[in-house]
Amino acid sequence: MNWGVLLLPGSNCAEDCFHAVDQVLGQPVRYLWHKDTDLGDVDAIIIPGGFSYGDHLRPGAIAHLSPAMTSVKAFAEKGGLVIGICNGFQILTESRMLPGALLQNKGLKFLCQDQTLRVENNSTAFTSEYEAGDVIICPIAHNEGNYYAKAETIEEMEANGQVLFRYSSPDGEVSDATNPNGSINNIAGIINRNGNVVGMMPHPERSADSVLGLSAGKGVFVSMLKHLEAVNS
């Protein structure tokens, strides 16, 4: 399967994502330049973290208008798998490919820490390697990770199983005490209604290779690969 990692001015997690696909999954991967509208024959796209366009105005506000994003949107509309991590999640909400928005962390501090997450829904193309209720460790590193959406939207998303990950304690308890940034319902990662676009603030690519000491994030990439292999076989 062919993977693409979008490169925007200010992306700083692109190489980690590239490594996760190339070295951990052993799959072909290439960078997609933000000015290019031709994405080639990719089967999955990763929008990496970083500070695209310096996070000026709002994180993702300028990036989501880049030429490549028009093609990413069209790719997703045709059912292609897209995952936005951290700044990538912010870009996906700015582009309305995912509902809601990421506000400044409630505590006003940039957070950089290992974070425990509870897997909520494992019946997706991005989480099938996990069991619902699994607790995984994925690092977070963000200033605007406070997920917000209107009450009706949250209700709808919860009813449809669109919440994939929640900030939790190591034993899977979800409460205000385990919420690092003020996100509504401790939401750390979500999926769109069609099940092919995911946004998450935690970094699975930083916990994909066991040499880094954490490997639970690998499940996201393996789930995606298995899904692609199943639909293309």
């Binding site: 105005l57 709002r58 506000a61 300028i62 909400t93 928005a101 506000l103 917000y148 209107k150």
Partner: peptide, 9 residues
């Protein structure tokens, strides 16, 4: 509408 404000928030 296009860039300066995010109407969601």
């Amino acid at each position: 509408d296009k860039m300066l404000a995010n109407p969601v928030v």
